[in-house]
């Protein structure tokens, strides 16, 4: 099965932690590695299905609203709590390192 060909190791766990931006403890890394193996071996079972070619990503056609301005908020700031706003801006960490 394909899972047997995937290198499931600490490097992969670190990569997934980074891609997901979720910090893991050493204990959690070991746990994740064990559980990935179990779950992948389960979901691998679909690889033998004769699935056809039609991909379904959504189930509703969807309706788009008229492109007119309604009484929505100006900036979305009104929906945020004032405690995180400073001088009219959301206080966020710097995006560059240095």
């Amino acid at each position: 099965m394909p899972t047997e060909n995937i290198e499931l190791n600490e490097e992969l766990v670190d990569k997934l932690s980074w891609l997901s931006r979720i910090k893991l403890s050493e204990e959690e890394k070991i746990k994740l590695l064990a559980e990935i193996k179990i779950i992948l071996s389960y979901i691998d079972e679909i690889l033998t299905l004769e699935a056809g070619s039609e991909e379904i990503t959504h189930l509703a056609q969807g309706r788009v609203r008229e492109d007119i301005k309604l009484n929505s908020t100006e900036t979305g700031m009104e929906l945020l709590h004032q405690s995180i706003i400073e001088d009219g801006y959301v206080k966020a960490p710097k995006v560059y390192k240095g």
Partner: peptide, 22 residues
């Protein structure tokens, strides 16, 4: 910095949520 902040905060997710996201 942003990445550290993001990763530290998201460590608040419980285990089931973490593993499904990853």
């Amino acid at each position: 910095d942003w990445d550290t902040y993001y990763m530290e905060n998201r460590a608040l997710f419980g285990w089931e949520v973490k593993r499904r996201i990853m």
